[in-house]
Design a protein around this nucleic acid. Structure first.
Lengths: 206, 206
DNA sequence: CCTTGGATCTACTCAGTGCATAGATTGTCT
DNA sequence: AGACAATCTATGCACTGAGTAGATCCAAGG
């Protein structure tokens, strides 16, 4: 055992050793249990076994912590979208539908985190990491819809319409499912989504 | 001046006279100024010129007040959707697009209230009035998409796919616009929405 | 008229929150 | 060894939603 290497699992003394990661973990599970509205920084600190002022040294404030979590979530979503669109044997429309299904699945599985990703009032929207991760997720969708070598454009450019249409329908469906339109409770939403999403995506022409 | 009729504008004494309506008004304007996250029951009471415990007699708790506001908002949205689809000279698809535009316009104009309508954790989702108003808004869209005399179905029924598709794309677009995807700030979002929405809706086939 | 009951409103308390500050502790570098 | 910087604790402040006890007022009935 080499006591010199900056071990991640340091014996917990006055200094925690890896508080930043521990806080992120505690925050994630608290979020999953209580949802965005039930989240609190103090409770996160409590779960990390640390005083309520300790997080300050790793996250400027609660917004910074939430922004970090949202960033991780956006990256995870981007991973999933990229994975879903990597089956090159399928034709374009099939891949688009598959990616849409992955988007909705992510939203339903990671309800609270997905919710958080869009809570602009709670996030630092100018955080460069968050922007990067968000753009990465959108880019995965955009590449599939507008093609690999389409020119990069502003989101608001009218030539983006096909990608925005695809994103809108999938995002809107995910939100409706999460927000209880197809029945409250996770099971009801998931069953409805499975039964409904393919039929819904059939109405998208891009 | 008949002092017997229960005037809405009673001179403000110990009893307010019309506190319920005043609270709703104060809450609405507070919401518009500070957004859902910045809303507080105490500040609402303060603006209504009344102590912080006074609202209790008109709304069980903050959730009941917010639910009442969401209900009013859903009814207002339903009114707008019905008005937008009433132009019988236009063909079906034109009317659907017009209704979608009305939906997005409402969301952008009434940002905070639209936001609130979908904050399930803050609302009493079982409140019958809220359910009624919500269903009314959806029904306006559904009638236009599936036809006046289509059978009534559960939202999650696969035969609802055309209406859900329409709702999803419009709702998703509105959320993206509100949540700053097309640029932060009201102006940017509105300009982008104007430029983008028609092109986006062109990809919807119902 | 006058009293009595019920509705409305005030005043206070409590637990909980985010944030700021001051001070204790510890690892690291010279 | 000594000093420094980073990390963590402890405390205080202003705010929140919610609960309780009591003041006030209105509108009946005697």
């Amino acid at each position: 055992m080499n006591p010199n290497l900056p071990s991640v699992k340091m014996a917990r003394g006055y200094h925690h050793g890896d508080l930043r990661a521990t806080l992120l973990g505690a925050a994630k599970s608290l979020l999953a249990e209580k949802g965005v509205e039930g989240f609190s920084l103090r409770e996160t600190a409590r779960r990390a076994g640390v005083s309520s002022g300790a997080p300050k040294h790793h996250f400027r404030d609660v917004r910074a912590l939430l922004t970090a979590i949202a960033t991780l979530a956006f990256d995870e979503l981007a991973d999933r979208l990229e994975a879903a669109s990597s089956d090159c044997s399928a034709d374009r429309m099939t891949r688009i539908h598959g990616q849409g299904a992955a988007y909705v699945r992510f939203a339903l599985e990671q309800r609270a985190r997905f919710d958080l990703m869009w809570r602009v009032a709670l996030l630092d929207m100018n955080d460069p990491e968050r922007c990067r991760a968000g753009d990465r997720a959108f880019a995965a969708m955009d590449r599939l819809v507008r093609g690999e070598d389409a020119p990069e454009l502003e989101h608001s450019d009218p030539r983006m319409a096909p990608s925005i249409a695809c994103w809108s329908i999938v995002h809107g469906f995910a939100r409706l499912a999460i927000d209880g339109t197809f029945g409250l409770g996770v099971d009801a939403a998931e069953r409805a989504a499975d039964a409904l999403l393919p039929a819904v995506l059939a109405h998208l022409s891009v």
